[in-house]
């Protein structure tokens, strides 16, 4: 019985790590589009609609990421430093690439902290 539960937990763990990598990538892509496409379009071409559209889309993606990060960190019992790192890199354009690498490493070495 406990063996099944442990197996379920391991399967849920793999699923959760895949999920946070996908959400991290989504957040990273919307941030890159906002910073490198929408903002220049607004300031250089005067197209206000670019940031008016991408701002809320990135805002929603960021909230989904924060929720998923808190969920994953709580599930695995990650330390505050690890959570802060994943938060900080998500706020930097292309930081999602570094986060994806870190999460891949975490998956390979064991994501549970306790």
């Amino acid at each position: 019985m406990m063996g099944d539960a442990t197996e379920d937990l391991q399967s849920a763990a793999r699923q959760q790590l895949r999920r946070i990598r996908a959400v991290s990538l989504l957040e990273g892509v919307t941030l890159v589009i906002l910073v490198f496409v929408a903002v220049p379009l607004k300031h250089l071409a005067g197209i206000d609609a670019a940031t008016a559209t991408m701002g809320p889309i990135h805002g929603t993606a960021f909230l989904i990421y924060i929720w998923t990060l808190a969920h994953t960190a709580s599930f695995f019992g990650w330390r505050k430093g690890e959570i802060f790192r994943l938060f900080l890199f998500a706020a930097v354009p292309l930081g999602a690439v570094a986060n994806a690498r870190w999460l891949k490493h975490k998956e390979a070495t064991g994501a549970f902290s306790n």
Partner: peptide
Amino acid sequence: ITLLSALHGALSGRLRRRTGIL
């Protein structure tokens, strides 16, 4: 709202783990 969302995420993660506050 961002902090509240994070709190909801943390509670959901803990419930999914099926164990209490460590």
